[in-house]
């Protein structure tokens, strides 16, 4: 039997009222499978972040629905507050800013995601320590966020997203604040997580520097899905980008 996709977005529409209806998303559908690294591309204002908010159960769609693990979880008028447990156990989030709690050290920041899920502190911190070690941050485990570099903070945020072993990870511009080397390291980390843990990972980005690491990309423009491509042998063919462009980058 075929396993359902970890994330399914069907006909997602999002309208905002603000002196006239703004169509942030206009009938976007896509699926994300276990072990798949998906890039969501598009210029600013194309609806990428709105799509992530809807997929992450942080905004209900105006029309359409969201399925996680084959289960319909969000639809117009859905009670998002009641979906906290789904977010807690089935989705990991990574953002442009690491959003670490400043008064908790790296281990505690990661363990927090487990402790709010009723995991006792001892096992939670051991697990957090293991994740930080796996991400090359063992030596920074007891450092407060203010003492970590931007790249280290982002890796701690990734470790926190992984803490609950969620089948779905959503990342919004996670490399925007990093230089090209560290940005690629973060996408490579997602690649590794997808391969080793089998998580489905959707990364919103307009940074083409690591496109070769994605399995697939979709492109949004003015709230509509305008393109999709599949990675072939580390080379991404995408509308609007020539192969030469990709090689140069």
């Amino acid at each position: 039997m075929t396993r359902p996709p970890v994330l399914g977005v069907d006909g997602a529409v999002k309208h905002y009222d603000g002196g006239g209806v703004v169509r942030a998303l206009d009938g976007v559908s896509f699926e994300l499978h276990a072990g798949e690294l998906l890039g969501i591309m598009g210029p600013s204002g194309s609806g990428k972040s709105t799509l992530l908010l809807i997929a992450g159960l942080l905004e209900p769609p105006t029309a359409g629905e969201v399925r996680i693990g084959g289960q319909r979880v969000s639809w117009p008028g859905a009670d998002l507050d009641g979906l906290r447990e789904v977010r807690r156990r089935r989705i990991g989030f990574v953002f442009q800013k690491p959003n670490l709690i400043p008064f908790l050290n790296a281990t505690e920041n990661v363990a927090l995601a487990l402790e709010i899920d009723d995991v006792p502190p001892g096992p939670a911190r051991r697990h957090a320590g293991g994740l930080l070690r796996a991400l090359g941050l063992a030596h920074r485990a007891s450092s407060l966020p203010a003492r970590l570099s931007g790249g280290e903070q982002q890796r701690v945020a990734v470790a926190r997203a992984l803490a609950n072993d969620p089948p779905l990870i959503l990342a919004d511009e996670p490399t925007a604040a990093l230089d090209s080397v560290r940005g690629r390291q973060v996408i490579a980390l997602f690649r590794r997580i997808a391969d080793e843990r089998g998580a489905g990972i959707a990364v919103v980005t307009h940074d083409p520097r690591a496109l070769d690491l994605f399995d697939r990309t979709i492109e949004l423009s003015d709230g509509k899905l305008v393109g999709a491509s599949t990675g072939i042998g580390g080379l991404v063919l995408q509308r609007g980008l020539s192969e030469g462009d990709v090689e140069r980058r």
Binding site: E115, D117, D118, P120, P123, A124, E196
Partner: peptide
């Protein structure tokens, strides 16, 4: 490859 530790079912663990 570490997997999430077991939940205790109690809600008073949080730091």
């Amino acid at each position: 490859d570490a997997r999430q530790p077991r939940r205790s079912g109690r809600g008073d663990w949080i730091v």
